[in-house]
Design a binder for these strands. Structure first.
Length: 937
RNA sequence: AGGCGCGUAGCUCAGGGGGAGAGCGCUACCUUGACACGGUAGAGGUCGGCGGUUCGAAACCGCCCGUGCCUACCA
């Protein structure tokens, strides 16, 4: 024992140093001349911190990348972050609000300075955290969406799309966030059912002959009504179509129109039409050429004078309402209606309320000028790429989700009324004429040409949606628009690893942009993984207080520190008590340190094909134990080794050596197949089983008797065993490395040199191939037989409560010639593993002494009672066994009795059943004999 | 409303036309010279329900029930 490894395995001691070693050795940048393999890291928010979803996804990517690197591919895992326009700007705005100032008083340049400053100081935390996970990104190539290179590319794309008439500016109804005062895309709006009211309001007919009642959930928008719509076939309102009604409060006449959109069954069958404040109404307004009346300021307060678009209407709003916030205005409008006797009825109503995913405020449909990408011409080739198999979704079913969206895709609103982001490269002339250009100079040239003289231009103040730059990520990070070698080599990338929640946001858009600007798909496969949820199946979120920081699982955390972490910085501080309570209940002792490898293995094991992943801490604990098991197995193997001598001299391989070699072969095949199919859980399970069940439970135990001097094995045999112990482990470690990089590296550094194999890092060692180690059926059958006998003996021990320390005298009877031969040839192992002290054969006719009996095939194994055996226990056991066999027998007989089974089922199935029948009958006969014997006692 | 999932051991989940699996938990025994973050032996399931296809269904098909997510929404 020259150099015992400490125990238990303590991951904290090795991980940092190990990662630093990989950096020093330059393991991560592309190496060699193999086929390129490239994964783009979905860029996380630069200001964010690592959450479970990231850690999970990063682990899967790292497993792929490390596997391919070891297989000799030229691997690039391209990292970087995005600037997260809205989130980041909000954050810094909140900061400066505490200094009693705001971005408008600071001015654009100063405000942007503040953000950059903050970004430099606390940005990039997430990429530091990724290093803790062992992520093998090529950090030397890290990019940020606002880098000058990427910004340049974004401008280039914008200009080209504009020149190709794929970007336009238009006044449309958009999702408007009145708190952030910016447009947001459909995808940034989350609608949930909330309780509200349905107000029934009477609109008097203009001729004074009565009125009609409309139902609305938003009475304040009445100020912007321009029509009432009814269904064209609705008999109740036929006579009113084409007449006008008096709009309450405003006192203007508006027409009654007919439109198929109206559902006569709902409410009164009449709908008020407010094209400037409702998406459906907007559509109707377009169809009927109605004017659009906007009543809100950008922060959703009532205007003094309504703005009329697409028409000549002029409309004043009563002074009492001016400047009122939208919900205050709602109350005021209702009060006015009530005063005038026009509020007919109020009822409770559940309705879907759209909220901004960042601000949580109710989103307002709002009429503004915005920039749009014309998606039709981009979507068609993007769909074709998937339809034709140039891009493959894994699991395949997700392509359906992709098509669902692509077929109904709408133009993409890409402008945001923010300062943090890529400012739109558009300048306006004095008359509003648009000049889109790469630089202001270029715009000036265009303008001078247009106006015939130099004019002063004003740049569009808005910036682009962050997803616009993210959509370009697969080629801009590789240097586009320059024709760089990286671009030529790594585009199209190999696979995109992502969650299904951003198929629309990101995946579809990358495909559209990649095809447009590279003429080729951005990735060949899209592996869509599930979303990590807490142990209750709930989505993890800060506001629910159920988030786990992946690094807390790695390092461990005290209960109170965890409570503190979960309850600080909450949006709704009143939740703090409940969160603290729940947290203390779930983690009374905090979380122990599991180490990165255990966490990673857990992620791999959880990565099944389903869409939800309920995260279970107990599983991670189990994989920490697995690390410890592996660690100790390695200690054992190393303790046996004569340092440096294991590669010399003749090796003789005994059945256990040949068997474990076959097991490793099988494991390699399973793991390789699993990784290629992105079935990470299968890979993890195959490895777990191999190391724990095959290597530790059986092989190490089989090796022990060989290495004991008293058993008479030759030196060549002992050398073969010592060598195999290490060699199997060494190869297994390489197979495991992509999932558990740290522990495998440390152990490999110790083991490889003993085998005369060396290299700077296991990360650069070759991935185990399917070479050599041909299946040895004889050895497999030997060991399977041995296992069956050992298990039978252990079973007797367990049932009879025979102490483990007590050795057994065992008698065998019946059985085949090979049973007899094996019992002699494998005697050493049988004695050691079964704790047998004496083994004898009984002739067929000989009546065995009182004993417990087990069957292995036709062979009977007797453990003579001799004060050891509890007769009652043996009777009970036999009774149970008999019952089980009889049930089996019944089933088999029924099956074989069916003529249709014999004629229609495949012959081998029938033969199998027949063999089963025979075996079961024999076993029952044996048990009956044994029962008879016990009765006589 | 439409789409997509899921329902298998107490829990978390694999599997998938021919004898029900894993991990955790549970029970009993064991500090056996790698490992108690361990070992050995056990207990535990009408595979959501009902039909159909089939010689044979937990698996394939249909319907139903329960449950989750996504998309679109009725003012």
């Amino acid at each position: 024992m020259s150099d015992p490894l400490d125990r238990p395995f303590s991951p904290a001691d090795i991980e940092h140093e190990c990662y630093q070693q990989w950096l020093d050795l330059d393991v991560f940048p592309p190496h060699g001349h193999g086929d390129p393999y490239c994964i783009m890291l979905p860029p996380p928010n630069v200001t964010g911190t690592l959450h479970m979803g990231h850690a999970f996804q990063d682990t899967l990517m790292d497993i792929l990348v490390r596997t391919m690197r070891m297989r000799g591919r030229r691997v690039l895992w391209q990292p970087g972050t995005d600037h997260a326009g809205i989130a980041t700007q909000m954050l810094v705005e909140r900061q400066i609000a505490q200094e009693n100032t705001d971005r408008h008083s600071l001015g654009r340049a100063a405000f942007l300075d503040r953000i950059w400053q903050w970004q430099k100081q606390s940005g990039g935390q997430i990429t530091q955290q990724m290093r803790r996970l062992g992520a093998s990104c090529d950090w030397s190539r890290e990019r940020f969406t606002l880098d000058s290179g990427l910004s340049h590319a974004v401008t280039e794309v914008f200009v080209r799309l504009y020149e190709q008439n794929l970007i336009y500016r238009g006044k449309r109804l958009v999702n408007w966030d009145p708190v952030l005062r910016t447009a947001v895309s459909d995808l940034e709006v989350l609608s949930e059912e909330e309780s509200g009211h349905l107000w029934h309001i009477r609109y008097p007919l203009s001729d004074g002959s009565g009125g009609i009642v409309v139902a609305t959930t938003r009475p304040e928008t009445l100020l912007g009504d321009v029509a009432i719509a009814v269904h064209p076939g609705d008999s109740r309102y036929q006579s009113l179509i084409g007449t006008t009604v008096r709009l309450p409060i405003i006192n203007q006449d508006i027409p009654v129109i007919a439109d198929e959109y109206v559902d006569p069954e709902f409410g009164s069958g009449c709908v008020k039409i407010t094209p400037a404040h409702d998406f459906n109404d907007y559509q109707i307004g377009q169809r009927h050429h109605l004017p659009m009346v906007n009543i809100f300021s950008p922060d959703a307060h009532i205007l003094a004078e309504a703005e009329c678009h697409a028409g000549t209407l002029s409309r004043s709003i009563p002074e009492a309402l001016h400047g009122m916030e939208r919900y205050v205005a709602r109350k005021a409008v209702l009060a006015m209606l009530k005063d005038q006797g026009l509020l007919v009825r109020t009822e409770e109503h559940r309705l879907m309320v759209p909220r901004g995913d960042r601000s949580q405020t109710v989103i307002e449909p709002y009429l503004t000028d915005q920039w749009y990408v014309r998606t039709g011409p981009l979507a068609e080739p993007a769909m074709a790429a998937v339809r034709e198999g140039r891009i493959r979704f894994v699991p395949e079913n997700w392509s359906k989700t992709y098509f669902d969206w692509m077929e109904r895709i709408e133009d993409w609103c890409i402008s945001r009324q923010l300062w943090w982001g890529h400012q739109i490269p558009a300048w306006y002339g004095p008359d509003g004429k648009i000049f889109v250009a790469r630089h202001e100079d270029e715009a000036q040239v265009q303008a001078s040409r247009h106006y015939g003289m130099p004019v002063s231009l004003q740049r569009d103040p808005d910036v682009l949606d962050t997803w616009f730059s993210s959509a370009l990520w697969p080629f801009t990070t590789l240097g586009w628009p320059e024709k760089t070698p990286e671009l030529a080599e790594f585009y199209p990338t190999s696979v995109l690893v992502t969650g299904f929640d951003i198929i629309f946001f990101w995946v579809a858009r990358m495909i559209m942009m990649g095809l447009r600007f590279m003429g080729e798909v951005p990735f060949r496969e899209v592996y869509v993984h599930g979303l990590v949820r807490d142990s209750e199946g709930q989505k993890m979120s800060k506001s629910k207080g159920n988030v786990l920081d992946p690094l807390d699982l790695v390092d461990g955390i005290e209960a109170e520190a965890l409570v503190q972490k979960r309850t600080s910085g909450l949006m709704q501080p009143k939740m703090a008590d409940k969160i603290a309570r729940d947290t203390r209940k779930e983690f009374p002792d905090g979380i122990p340190s599991f180490g990165t490898d255990a966490l990673r293995f857990g992620f791999a094991a959880l990565a099944t094909q389903g869409r939800d992943i309920t995260f279970d801490l107990k599983r991670i604990e189990g994989y920490r134990n697995f690390c410890n098991k592996l660690w100790n197995a390695a200690r054992f193997a190393l303790m046996q080794a004569a340092p440096g001598a294991e590669s010399d001299g003749e090796h003789l391989l005994l059945p256990p050596e040949r068997w474990i070699t076959g097991r490793l072969q099988a494991c390699k095949a399973s793991v390789s197949r699993a990784i290629e199919q992105y079935r990470f859980a299968d890979a993890a399970q195959a490895l777990y089983q191999f190391f724990w069940n095959d290597y530790c439970d059986w092989y190490i135990e089989l090796a022990k008797p060989v290495l004991r001097s008293e058993n008479g094995f030759s030196e060549a045999e002992q050398r073969g065993t010592r060598h195999t112990l290490l060699a199997i482990l060494e190869e297994g470690l390489r197979l495991l490395h992509p999932i558990m990089p740290f522990i495998t590296e440390i152990l490999w550094q110790r083991i490889a040199p003993v085998l005369g194999r060396s290299g700077p890092s296991i990360a650069l060692a070759p991935y185990p191939g399917m070479n050599g180690g041909v299946a040895d059926n004889v050895a497999d059958a030997d060991i399977e037989w041995l296992m069956a006998v050992v298990k039978a003996l252990r079973s007797v021990r367990g049932e009879m409560d025979i102490p483990a320390g007590r050795t057994l005298a065992v008698l065998l009877q019946a059985g085949t010639a090979s049973d007899r031969e094996r019992s002699e040839r494998l005697e050493n192992w049988l004695f050691a593993l079964g704790r047998v002290e004496k083994l004898g054969w009984l002739e067929h006719a000989v009546e065995p002494p009182p004993a417990a009996m087990q069957l292995v095939g036709e062979m009977r194994i007797f453990v003579p009672l001799a004060g050891l055996i509890n007769v009652e226990a043996e009777r009970a056991r036999l009774g149970k066994e008999e019952q089980r066999l009889r049930a089996d027998l019944g089933k088999i007989r029924t099956k074989l009795a069916q003529e249709s089974f014999r004629t229609r089922a495949p012959a081998e199935v029938v033969a199998k059943e027949e063999a089963q029948l025979l075996e079961t009958e024999q076993a029952l006969a044996q048990i009956a004999d044994q029962q008879r014997r016990l009765l006589s006692l």
